[in-house]
């Protein structure tokens, strides 16, 4: 995508909004929908990866230390990961301004 959605004018809209390049979903910051964010106590984490399997956004992956963590660019803050975590690693907290 040459321009972001915030920069495109009506003249830049493709015929019928047809998407001609892949990657539109990857470029979309669904994290702006979030009203709560996941926070982690990795001391409790057993690295089972169940949170990443349940994540409806598919945005949880291993971080550099091998713990599972959400990518906040995409995370919508639904809290499914916190609900499903066996060892209660994840606590959802309110997003503040």
């Amino acid at each position: 995508m040459a321009k972001s959605e915030n920069e495109m004018t009506w003249k830049d809209v493709e015929i019928g909004c047809i998407v001609t390049e892949p990657g539109g979903a990857k470029a979309y910051e669904s994290g702006t929908w979030r009203s709560q964010r996941p926070t982690y106590n990795f001391n409790k984490c057993i690295k089972c990866g169940l949170c990443s399997l349940y994540c409806p956004e598919g945005c949880i992956d291993k971080n550099k230390d091998g713990y599972f963590e959400a990518d906040l660019f995409y995370c919508k803050g639904c809290g499914v990961c916190a609900r499903e975590c066996w060892t209660k690693v994840i606590t959802m907290v309110e997003e503040v301004e």
């Binding site: 019928g16 909004c17 047809i18 998407v19 001609t20 539109g24 979309y28």
Partner: peptide
Amino acid sequence: VAMGGFAA
């Protein structure tokens, strides 16, 4: 191409 997409 993809048609009928979502518009924010």
